[in-house]
Design a protein around this nucleic acid. Structure first.
Length: 589
RNA sequence: CGGGGCGUGGCGCAGUCUGGCUAGCGCGCCUGCUUUGGGAGCAGGAAGUCGGAGGUUCGAAUCCUCUCGCCCCGACCA
């Protein structure tokens, strides 16, 4: 491809509103153009990279035994009503009515496709002989995100690979899950991405039923906890906090006292007012678990984890109670709840860290008053202790003696053992060997294709622009002629271009009538992995100048046989990203 | 949904507080000449309902009211 015949509108300046590197660079490199908040046009360069990521995903899914199909983005709203997800999705589900032959038809744009695919299987699969099967598609998903942001990272329309496995048994599901997990590892590796599979919220099946494939990145929206010692990694929502080191200090217990704390209702206000650190406070949260109020105690500097609370309370729905409920239950306005005197009125669940607190401060269940020198066991006794808080940086690892570190990350993929939630709701059953009707067990496996690009750019760029691996780069080689009107140069360019094309290398020729500086800067910006400069200077010596994007210095390559050498490098790099990864790990120059 | 910021040629911005002539600057774009290995120089040129509507005023990019859009933080996120 020739630059002047393509459409590559690069920008020197960063458009207003683009905050993170991937967004800025994709705009500046002419890969995308914003149409509205959360919707982007993929320009030729962006589309080429997107297609490459898509191709890798497709190849690996095929290799793992999944079969591709294509479902419509449009579906009848009634299908979503059958699984209760119209309500579950709320405004995120884009739904609308159209007039059709005089009647109103309710439609939805698919944010995911469990319903559509399960309905298909319910109609077309009826025997164990047809199972297991894994169906996948690569298709545009629609989600009316509350707040689209960070360029291509969170949009209302995005390209997703979604796969669904239909298994006759739990063992079969586990087998498929392992295969998908392994395929995901290969996909991220082939894309040149650093990734971290982490344990995630697992839903109805429990255990190790869900993993997220995280791309560690400064600007990631998710937080994961990772133990370098044993490799344990989990989403913050999921990460366990071990209860060891739970010996209570033998500080003498002081006498309980009530202090006036006018207007101090938040942890910060109370700790400032009483001049004590937040970790000496007991935070008392009133939740409603399936409609029934419960009290949850965590240390003032800790964050309550609603998933853990839900499990501890054995509830299906959990939400912070309204101010009215809190006042009714504690007798005090929000901000002054405390465990003392609450026993018997409602179940009290306390985080393990509360158990070892001595002479703590907490709400007095009375407006503008707090209690100090509160001691668990003496002044109150929770119904149950457990792990109820979010793990955080520096917490001990639940699997070994190490310490967990907090990292921001981009969720690139998610594998999930669904169980029978959708198959039961939509009647996806099969007849087993013994002529028994069984409900199909499902798994689902998603990858955000756009996030592969954003994740790569976030993790691999420099002050000049994007640094692509060959596997995802829009073109593999950039040919930059230095003197367009020089006869020898243009002949050399023509020949090398033809030879590389013939060898199957994807080449972009910067044939613009521009100065060297412009070409070099744009080359760095769009990040093509191998740059080849052809000009009279090198040609005099019979040389080309070659430079990998991640190298600082160019080197010379004799023009004779150059095409074959380059084609060989590229072919190698395509499969293993070896040079790209070596440069990332600081082994390059 | 709560808080904050911003809308001025394609892009980045100044001008707005304190209303006043044909609304500026840089980049980009077009024409010509010169130049040509890390974002060239000179000369000439095209291009803007100042987000929109209403209002105040002799006069509005500037003041007032409403409204639309974009960005960030938070809440939310199968």
């Amino acid at each position: 491809m020739f630059w002047t015949r393509s459409f590559i509108p690069t920008m020197k300046e960063t458009p207003e509103g683009a905050e993170i590197p991937s967004h800025q660079l994709m705009l500046r490199a002419g890969m995308i153009n914003q149409v509205m908040a959360g919707a982007y046009t993929y320009l030729p360069l962006g589309l080429r990279s997107l297609k490459k990521a898509e191709r890798i995903v497709r190849q690996e899914m095929d290799a793992a035994g999944a079969v591709e199909l294509l479902m419509p983005a449009l579906s009848p709203l009634s299908l979503w009503e059958r699984t209760g997800r119209v309500e579950a999705f709320g405004d995120v589900l884009i739904k609308f009515a159209v007039q059709r032959a005089g009647r109103k038809v309710q439609l939805a744009l698919g944010p995911t496709h469990e319903e559509v695919v399960t309905d298909l299987v319910a109609h077309r699969i009826s025997s164990y002989r047809q199972l297991p099967v894994t169906l996948y598609q690569i298709q545009t998903k629609f989600r009316n995100e509350e707040r689209p942001r960070f360029g291509v990272m969170r949009t209302s329309e995005f390209l997703m690979k979604d796969a669904y496995s239909f298994n006759p048994s739990l063992e079969s599901l586990n087998e498929t899950y392992e295969k998908m997990y392994a395929a995901y590892c290969r996909i991220f590796e082939r894309c040149g991405l650093e990734y971290l599979p982490v344990e995630a919220e697992s839903g109805p099946i429990g255990g190790d039923a869900s993993h997220e494939f995280m791309i560690p990145a400064e600007n990631g929206e998710d937080t994961v906890l990772h133990c370098r010692k044993c490799g344990y990694a989990a989403n913050q929502e999921r990460a366990e906090v071990p209860s060891r080191d739970c010996t209570r200090p033998d500080t003498p217990e002081k006498e309980l006292a009530k202090l006036a704390t006018p207007g101090a209702s938040t942890i910060e206000q109370v700790s400032t007012f009483l001049k004590i650190k937040p970790n000496k406070l007991i935070k008392t949260l009133i939740y409603e678990a399936d409609g029934k109020p419960i009290a949850v105690l965590v240390r003032g500097d800790h964050e309550a984890n609603e998933g853990k609370i839900r499990r501890a309370a054995e509830a299906t729905e959990i939400a912070l109670a309204s101010p009215e409920v809190i006042e009714k239950v504690t007798g005090a306005p929000v901000g002054f709840a405390g465990p003392v005197g609450l026993a018997g009125k409602l179940p009290i669940y306390a985080d393990n860290s509360v158990k070892i607190m001595v002479n703590a401060a907490t709400g007095a269940n009375e407006a503008d008053a707090h209690l100090v020198n509160v001691n668990p066991g003496r002044d109150f006794t929770p119904d149950k202790y457990g792990d109820l808080r979010n793990a955080r940086d520096g917490d001990p690892c639940p699997r070994c003696s190490g310490t967990m570190a907090e990292r921001h990350a981009i969720e690139g993929g998610h594998v999930f053992k669904l169980g029978t939630k959708y198959s039961a709701a939509l009647g996806a059953k099969f007849l087993d060997h013994a002529e028994q009707q069984q409900t199909i067990i499902m798994g689902c496996y998603g990858i955000g294709i756009n996030r592969i690009l954003a994740g790569l750019i976030e993790t691999r760029h420099d002050e000049h622009g994007i640094v692509w691996p060959v596997a995802i780069a829009p073109y593999e080689v950039l040919l930059a002629p230095m003197k367009a009107d020089d006869e020898a140069t243009s002949q050399a360019v023509e020949r090398l271009y033809a030879d590389l094309q013939a060898a199957g290398v994807e080449v972009l020729v910067d044939d613009r009538d521009a100065r060297a500086g412009v070409k070099f800067n744009d080359a760095d910006l769009i990040g093509i992995p191998l740059r080849i400069v052809i000009g009279p200077r090198g040609l005099k010596e019979g040389n080309l100048e070659v430079k990998w994007r991640w190298e600082k210095q160019a080197s010379m390559l004799p023009i004779d046989g150059a095409a074959a050498t380059i084609a060989e490098w590229i072919a190698q790099e395509r499969t293993d990203n070896a040079r790209f990864l070596a440069a990332r790990n600081g082994e390059g120059d």
